[in-house]
Amino acid sequence: MLARIAHELYWLGRNLARAEFTARAVDGVFRSELQTPSDSGPGLTLGWHGLLMMLGGTPGDEALGRGHALARLTLDADRPDSMLASVERAREGARAVRDVISAEMWEAINTTTLTLRGDGTARWSAPAGPYLASQYVKQRTALIWGIADRAMLRDEAKSFLDAGSFIEVADMMLRLLRIALPTAEQDPRRDGNALALLQAVGGFHAYLRAVTAPPNAQPVARFLIFERAYPDSVAACVDSLHDAFAAADASPRDSQPVLRVSRLAADLDFQRRMLPAGTELVDICERAQHELVAVDQDVADRYFAGMAAGERGIAMVV
């Protein structure tokens, strides 16, 4: 398929996954905040501040109230890190590849965007609006992925779409963990917000069924990084990413992205069984995240005719 289309599909997957992840995170933090005081001190830190950091925004100096943070994370069209902005980007991408992803999926994405914009309606007005919007995005992205899985051919196009979503979820999860995990000097016992972390990624029930340990920071983080049975865990995403590239690649044996992802999967598996001495989970997250950045570049070089940052100049000589 055309390199440009593959590139669009990959980023469509990333943008949809980012919107979904943001929606879940907003939902999780919103709910946990209703129950515990936000000044619960050190330990596992996850609040509005953390979410803004996760998405790459700088929270700024002003004391961020819930309302303010919610608005920025969800429906602020001017901020590239908002949920709405991710959905808008997804729509732009979907428009370019609508013939590949099926009319039904395009319509689902288009309708989601139009509804989320809420032009001229009071549907998302404060105070509960942003929360309702994130609920809506959770439902709609589930629908969109459902259509993709049922209606799209399992071909190269689907592989690139999926690859985008896997790398995005892995990346988001790693970002979230790097912010939320307690550092060495903090009191590891005070990690009551581990529950919030599970809620924020929508993994609470899965955790309870898979792990017997109480939901404290260490076991929760290990679960979110290493548990292959949990589809949004870093390890599971990396495995799926490998499968997606291997399926799309004409010659996976000598494919740089396939090899790099495969190495990363092996590393994670090793670290799950035995954490090297002196290594914190946070370090593992950081290293994995760097690897994913490298994968992005490999993918651009191998499949997208170098279309990474969109810089392909043509110069003229006269």
């Binding site: 810089e311 392909r312 100049g313 043509i314 110069a315 003229m316 000589v317 006269v318």
Partner: peptide, 16 residues
Amino acid sequence: IPPVKGVYRGGSTSTL
């Protein structure tokens, strides 16, 4: 009728 006319890919500057 330009003596030399060309296009290349790549953003780098050329010295002639």
